[in-house]
Simulated scan of single mutants.
Amino acid sequence: MKRIIAFCSFSALILTMGCATNPLTGKSTLALVNNSSIFPSAFQQYDTFLKENIVVTGTADAKRVESVGIKIKQAAEKWLAAVGQADYLKDYQWEYKLVDDKAVNAWCMPGGKIVVYTGILPVTKDEAGLATVMGHEVAHALLNHGQQRMSAGMLQQAGAVGVGLAVGEKNEQTQAIAMTAYGAGSQMFGMLPFSRSHESEADKIGLILMAIAGYNPEASVPFWERMGAASGGSAPAEFMSTHPSHNTRVSNLRKWIPEAKAEAAKYGVVFK
């Protein structure tokens, strides 16, 4: 019992200290690992990935990826400067690469390292569609979702230790059942909703970023409808997925578009 009490007290202390406030949302988020530790590792992994894959350069598509990425980054700089947080981006090292891969995908590493796969370009179709994707990915980086997921993973592991302590004196079968239940429960009711909330948060912030960058946020809806069609309805049920369903995503975007336009108007960007 004493070990359990000590463990709980230590965990509470870590939770209290391991939080940060994001300037774009005003929310307090998990930050058990500092970006000063995460970014160098992410940059190294990004460089390794580029060396091991075919990076497309010099083409119109490659130039478009970089151009849109720069516009989205500049939109982020304007937004953060307006709220007195210009220094927030000082450690980010932005890079935007097009990689020859049939996967319909794009991703961003912590610190602003972005990859767009050629396989997603037929779905983006135009620059506004690409801005939807890159706004979403830049948003992930600005919202420190990588940091939060690492922190959540640490808490999940710590929880497993706590469960182990709680059932440590039980028989092996009881211990096995408890650990299995904890693993399934923490994934289904903790990590999956946590990841879905990140995706929705990146959708909303990405919508604002693309609008400030001059891209009509209404273009996000047909893009995600095309993504839904491209998936062929093969996505798992929403409650079992790390991403919201396409219907949920499109519904949310329609709701957020007026807010994105209003935010963009503050920077002189007006859509008819």
Rank of each mutant, 00 (worst) to 15 (best):
R3V: 06
I4C: 13
S9P: 01
F10E: 13
A12I: 10
I14H: 09
L15G: 12
G18V: 07
T21S: 13
S28T: 12
S28Q: 14
N34C: 08
N35C: 07
I38V: 10
T48V: 11
V56W: 02
V56P: 04
D61Q: 14
A62Y: 06
A62L: 05
A62T: 05
K63I: 09
V65D: 05
S67L: 12
G69T: 06
I70C: 13
K71W: 03
Q74E: 15
A76V: 01
W79P: 05
A82Q: 04
A82V: 03
Q85T: 09
Y88K: 06
L89V: 03
D91H: 07
D91F: 03
K97F: 08
A103T: 13
V104T: 12
V104Q: 09
N105V: 00
N105I: 00
A106E: 03
A106R: 01
W107L: 05
C108R: 07
C108N: 10
L121T: 07
E127N: 14
A131Y: 06
G135S: 11
E137S: 04
V138A: 14
H140E: 10
L142K: 06
H145D: 06
S151H: 08
A158Y: 09
G159K: 07
V161S: 11
V163N: 04
G168F: 04
T180R: 14
T180A: 15
A181E: 07
Y182T: 01
G185I: 02
S186Q: 01
M191L: 14
E199I: 00
G206P: 03
M210H: 03
N216W: 00
N216Q: 01
P217Y: 04
V221Q: 02
W224N: 02
F239R: 14
P244I: 00
H246T: 03
R249T: 00
V250G: 05
R254V: 00
R254S: 02
K255R: 12
K255G: 04
K255C: 06
E259A: 07
K261N: 03
E263I: 08
